[in-house]
Nucleic acid binder design. Structure first.
Lengths: 200, 200
DNA sequence: AAATGCATGTAACGCGTTACATGATTTT
DNA sequence: AAAATCATGTAACGCGTTACATGCATTT
């Protein structure tokens, strides 16, 4: 097994929810765990094959008259064992690559307007996400607490909320600071202009 | 220029702080912007060459008697222009790959002890980071507010703090929830045991 | 008639990491 | 004497994305 990649385990994990095809998995990744994990077709299909070869999943082919065949994968006992072992390994830390923050870090090279626009865009997006996470928690998780997965899904939904709230709080503070800087720049610009008028 | 990669711009941006060699840049990435951005030698050296070819940086070779030559790169006017243009492009959203959260999402397949350990490790790590960000803000940034970069570096330090605080808050709530689940599991285990005693 | 959706997959490419090579200097 | 630091870089590899190919069914 490769050293670093957790793609195989992620797919294995999602197959504990229910047996699925590659197409289904891509859908689940996009719509359900999309804010936690991403995975593309180019990864999913080959990885499923490899998992089948290793006996961690079973593959069943559903034939239809007209549509192309569906390959439905289900996790095996062996697969469950490997998954559980992986879950016990301390999670790999995320490699940090936050372009928004980098651009702010280099803010002295940009105009304040641009920085303000970036932060305001973030407020829009993360505000919407906050609402979405709340909705998911109340409408989809809290109403299905009988399922054994539900408490854990709730925790991840709560994580998203807490983080988005933090980002919004920070954005407010930051916008204030940016506007203060803009004012200073304007006033020193004014000062220079007056000087020039006096001179000219 | 490649479609997606922001590596070149990140290096260009760091060179606005001061002229540096590839080695220096790797150091700055690790020690200064390490929590925002990561970059490896294998990326840095070839990218610097390409930037030099495109005229966005100048390269000067410092010869030493004994040590190997140092290639010091400085950003050009053309480079500053491209950087400023890039800073105005809406930041690319991060691709989500949070292994810790994924493991929690799949928590029904793991033992509660393992999940608790993972969250507790996060409390340790993010608690330490929170302290670090505070220290950086007060000891390194607030004392150098005369530099034009300082206000922006402060914003990113504040971002780190706000996020770490949110994670710690969430972790507390989550540990409580996990312990509640553990209790429920134990009590139903007890019930089964008693049944067996009564039977045997 | 054209576009979109279902469903499979592959090929090519690029980004990024890791490991290695080199070699002198300083520290332990 | 051994290890670590300074400082350059390259080669190989693997992960992951994007774009493409296929082909029927359904919607516009």
């Amino acid at each position: 097994m490769p050293r670093t990649s957790s793609t195989a385990y992620a797919l294995l994990g999602l197959l504990t929810i229910e047996p699925m095809s590659g197409y289904d998995l891509a859908l689940v990744v996009r719509t359900s765990v999309g804010h936690i994990w991403s995975e593309s077709y180019g990864q999913i299909y080959p990885t499923l094959r490899k998992l089948a070869v290793r006996g961690l999943v079973n593959r069943k082919t559903e034939r239809h008259r007209s549509k192309p065949d569906r390959h439905v994968y289900s996790i095996t006992t062996k697969g469950r064992k490997e998954l559980t072992a992986w879950l016990a390994v301390p999670p790999q830390p995320e490699i940090p690559r936050n372009e928004m923050l980098l651009k702010l870090f280099l803010g002295a090279q940009a105009s304040i307007d641009v920085l303000v626009a970036n932060v305001e865009r973030m407020v829009q997006e993360h505000g919407a996400l906050l609402q979405k996470f709340k909705r998911i928690e109340h409408d989809e998780i809290d109403k299905n607490l009988q399922y054994p997965d539900a408490p854990f899904w709730k925790m991840t939904a709560r994580y998203g909320q807490t983080e988005m709230e933090a980002h919004l709080k920070w954005a407010e503070e930051t916008l204030e600071a940016l506007r203060k800087i803009a004012k200073q720049q304007n006033s020193s610009l004014e000062a220079r202009k007056e000087k020039n008028y006096a001179r000219g």
